[in-house]
């Protein structure tokens, strides 16, 4: 039983860290412009495809990841510039619909250009199984997923807390107007946030595609939604919250599946979402703040 639990934890943490990577983008963007960027899951999909073509062209994992992150960063900035920036200050619902529109657009451009069928992802990582103890195993792909997540998280912490850009990001998300008055270039900061968030989603896309070796234009929808749940779970706008939220969600899902309810797996994610929204809408790590009257 103990071994079984450890095994499920390992599996849950691997998928959970992918959710966490995507959730980071959601959370940073929400933190800074209060937008649920519904197109974020599709940026993840684009990342997976870039990885796919890079791998096909013979690039290894490292360069596929770098390329995917770079392309997604540019894509994220473009989306923000073209679709969201003209709407700065517009009604929330309007920006949200625009995000939905961008999401549809990416998905359908994908279908148009690449066809709706799923494509097998080339094996750029030889999948070997390592036994940890007893029956507990971990495979090379899981190790890579974990390693990529940890490295990117450390980098992100560094960027957010140690660099000037990171300070600007925190300032803008705390109070955009005040930040502007302090001489921070808000537009650049927002672009930078999109770039980082999208790069993380791109990386998540590649490792996801390596793990479930296939890519298709609609592959971003469900992981995107899940990651969003993870972000809310951890407290949207809070970076460490996204990590914990992703891991918790991954573990719960794996638990539900392994208990024989795999069809209910997605239901579990949404049930968690609703419970957290009802009982602690600010998320596990959020502070409660009331509107002043």
């Amino acid at each position: 039983m103990f071994e079984y639990i450890v095994q499920q934890l390992i599996n849950g943490i691997s998928i959970g860290s992918i959710y966490a990577l995507i959730a980071l983008g959601y959370t940073m963007v929400y933190g800074i412009i209060k937008l649920i960027n519904f197109a974020h899951g599709d940026v993840f999909m684009v990342g997976a495809f870039v990885g796919y073509f890079a791998a096909k062209a013979g690039l290894g994992l490292f360069w596929s990841l770098i390329l995917a992150m770079a392309v997604c960063a540019i894509l994220g900035v473009l989306i923000e510039r073209l679709a969201y920036r003209p709407l700065r200050g517009a009604a929330r619902i309007v920006i949200l619909i625009t995000a939905i529109g961008v999401s549809f657009l990416l998905e359908n451009l994908g279908i148009y250009a690449l066809g709706p069928q799923a494509k097998g992802f080339p094996e750029i990582v030889t999948k070997t199984q390592y036994t940890l103890f007893g029956d507990v195993t971990i495979n090379s792909v899981q190790i890579i997923v974990l390693a990529v997540t940890v490295i990117l998280m450390v980098l992100l912490q560094y960027v957010v807390h140690k660099t000037k850009m990171g300070k600007a990001m925190r300032a803008v998300s705390y109070d955009m107007e005040a930040a502007r008055l302090m001489g921070i270039n808000v537009d650049t900061t927002i672009s930078f946030t999109f770039a980082i968030g999208s790069a993380l989603a791109g990386a998540a896309g590649v490792v996801f595609a390596v793990m479930y070796p296939s890519v298709d234009p609609l592959m971003g929808i469900i992981p995107g939604l899940k990651a969003f749940v993870a972000a809310v779970l951890g407290g949207i706008g809070i970076i460490p919250g996204a990590l914990v939220g992703g891991l918790v969600l991954g573990i719960v899902e794996t638990g539900v599946s392994s208990a024989g309810f795999s069809l209910w797996r997605d239901g579990a994610a949404f049930a968690i979402l609703i419970l957290i929204l009802i009982f602690k809408p600010s998320g596990l790590f959020g502070k409660n703040v009331r509107e002043k009257v």
């Binding site: 929400y30 209060k34 998300s173 809408p281």
Partner: peptide
């Protein structure tokens, strides 16, 4: 963006 006792985004 803020629920009745919703979160404000205090850290990024």
């Amino acid at each position: 963006g803020s629920s009745q006792d919703g979160s404000s985004t205090t850290s990024a």
